[in-house]
Design a protein around this nucleic acid. Structure first.
Lengths: 132, 132
DNA sequence: ATGGGTGCAAAGTGTTTGCAAGTAT
DNA sequence: ATACTTGCAAACACTTTGCACCCAT
């Protein structure tokens, strides 16, 4: 395993993710990072997001469309608006019993599951009605 | 709504998806389609995969990494090997009760949920052991 | 000093799209 | 005849990577 270093760039990326509670995409983080330091490159932001999520310091949320990042470290479920793309955390607790059950039945070494609900958020529903 | 046409190309794409039971990616379908007709273009295959899944004739399976397509029309859950990328159907039935619950709690108009388990398949586990 | 990290630009991957010509209805 | 579809290539969106230099340890 590599010995990770604590660079200024990595600190800024982590700090920026922690400041957001709205599941930013990598590019949104890149722009927020650039406000703090004009010099940091896209490659560095992407590299550090991958490193930080591998280290478990942030969460890499893989949803249909673009991937997001999350400052929460604990596994949880998501709700995605298929109209506006808004992503929300669900309060229902992550249930590891599912993982055990599937592991037993399939022989896989299960690391986790992802549960994503898709639908139209109240705001977009309202907009749809107004258009008609 | 558009009046869809029944073109030779669309038929070949649908037929090719139905022949596969291993969740092919769009590109795998493109290559299989090309074996039947040298002329069909990538754009046409992608366009038709999107149309067919919007029509509900096939399933667009959105998993981390590359999207896949499935000849099954009914919603179901998946198991993804994070080593080799193999994607398997789970036999557990899709549970619409979850959708109703989340709809009630969130105010979203829920269309579906996606549940994907991630882990290492037995074959890849064996390979990992052999390497050590 | 040394090996991980950075900025930059180029390349990669998977998918969509504009357009003129073709074709199902 | 109409308007949906096609093939083609270019464009797109997002992410990774090769390289020479830099800097945390």
């Amino acid at each position: 395993m590599k010995q990770l270093r604590n660079t200024k760039q990595r600190q800024i990326v982590l700090e920026t993710v922690l400041e957001h509670c709205d599941h930013p995409t990598a590019d949104q983080i890149y722009f927020a990072v650039r406000k703090k330091d004009e010099k940091i490159s896209r490659g560095t932001v992407y590299r550090n997001l991958n490193i930080l999520s591998e280290e478990g310091e942030i969460l890499h949320v893989k949803v249909p469309g673009v991937d997001r990042f999350d400052s929460r470290q604990d596994l949880h479920y998501h709700l995605l608006c298929s109209k506006c793309g808004k992503l929300t955390d669900l309060s229902d607790p992550y249930d590891p019993k599912f993982d055990h059950k599937i592991a037993r039945e399939s022989g896989y070494k299960i690391s986790r599951h992802r549960l994503i609900f898709e639908g139209i958020c109240p705001e977009c529903q309202k907009k749809e009605k107004e258009q008609q």
